[in-house]
Design a protein around this nucleic acid. Structure first.
Lengths: 218, 218
DNA sequence: TATATACGGGACTAAATAGTCCAAAATGAG
DNA sequence: CTCATTTTGGACTATTTAGTCCCGTATATA
């Protein structure tokens, strides 16, 4: 040991379609299971069974459980950001924000508020346990918030939001309301708190609108 | 088995001072360890060692790990509610709310945002795993929110808040901002997001004040 | 087609962790 | 003081779970 270069000369390591597919199957299974049971409460045997693979495949594609979890953090992060890009990339008006809110609430209400946010729950479980995972999650949250703040910037530039509005802070507040909403909804098994929390954050943003519009957020 | 009365005739079961003290020591240790490492990542041997007890004592005072965790949920719930009663029972003005916010932020900043809320992190870790724990946590959150909404009710009754303010919703929003703030702060290892989130919620409450006061929340 | 290497099945080992047990010491009621 | 009961130490077992290994099969490149 110790004769491996720090900056590995990246051994060729061929890769086949089948291999890629297996790796994907493992990640998908881990994603599903760890979403409903949590990371630490999910065993590798659970993952093996759900992904229709074997022990050797798990360890062929991932060094150990920690690496699988880290891969999952990346995997979920990519999924969430992709989904959120769809809903936020074109954001230019307050009503767009309301539509975004409604989509999140709707999705969460399908589970009666259960399970929470795939990113948020990993953040709670891993932040005090795996520094690398924590740092990836932190970056993912930052990227997510940036999608929001970019939209708010566009709204400010177009004159929809007043100049003194601070997009970054508004985005952070909205993200906190979202995460706290997920947490309370999960604990209560009821989406209600999530709706209330998001509406509060939207009201706050609304207070920076140049021409205050109608009442309801729906 | 099965010959035990449903409504147990509660065998006398004497209890000694020493026994109570040991039980307390175990709970204290579990509380400390599980706060920094999380519930699932803390083993009974960790608890035994930290509490200077033995295996038999753990199982003398708690049926199994799950029962210990449930006892901890009660324990922490009581601690938090007691602490919060101190800060909220006399709440009658917006500046009281600001002081409350500052105390929470200050406490959390001592850990640079780490560890999050003792209740919130348990809620995330246990809600999808132990129905009884989830339900206790849900009730504890409700009681906590009630401390806030009671204060807001007093403010509304005294005319500080406008009639159309809805204390329950405002309290839920504030709690979500707090929990989301804890989560983001823990992930970022920085209290910043928690401050921003709480300030958003306070601004929102401020917008219901009858006589808008000064600017800063500090 | 040859052959090196990725990929896979699944039994096996190792480690961590929960949970049991019993004999002894402390304690409190009568 | 006596005696039943609680409390305790700590070795022991059981179970769960991570991680290893061997050997066979599929796949890609030459």
């Amino acid at each position: 040991m110790g004769d491996e270069q720090g900056s590995a000369p990246t051994k060729p390591r061929r890769i086949s379609q089948r291999g890629i597919a297996t790796r994907e199957r493992i990640l998908e299974a881990a994603n599903r299971l760890m979403f409903v049971r949590g990371v630490n409460a999910t065993t590798l045997d659970d993952v093996r069974e759900a992904s229709q693979t074997s022990k050797s495949q798990l360890y062929h594609h991932f060094a150990d459980k920690q690496e699988l979890v880290r891969a999952l953090v990346r995997y979920r992060g990519a999924l969430v950001l992709q989904r959120e890009r769809g809903g936020l990339e074109r954001l230019r008006s307050f009503s767009g924000l309301v539509r975004w809110r409604n989509a999140l609430v709707q999705a969460n209400s399908l589970n009666n508020g259960k399970y929470g946010c795939g990113l948020g729950s990993m953040a709670v479980e891993l932040s005090d346990q795996d520094e690398q995972a924590r740092s990836m999650l932190s970056e993912t949250f930052a990227a997510w918030e940036k999608l929001i703040s970019d939209g708010l910037h566009r709204m400010r530039d177009s004159g929809a939001l007043r100049q003194e509005a601070e997009p970054e802070k508004l985005a952070t507040g909205l993200m906190a309301a979202l995460q706290g909403g997920y947490l309370l909804a999960n604990t209560a098994h009821d989406v209600g708190p999530m709706e209330v929390a998001l509406d509060m954050a939207l009201e706050h943003i609304k207070s920076f609108l140049t021409e205050p519009s109608g009442e309801s957020t729906r």
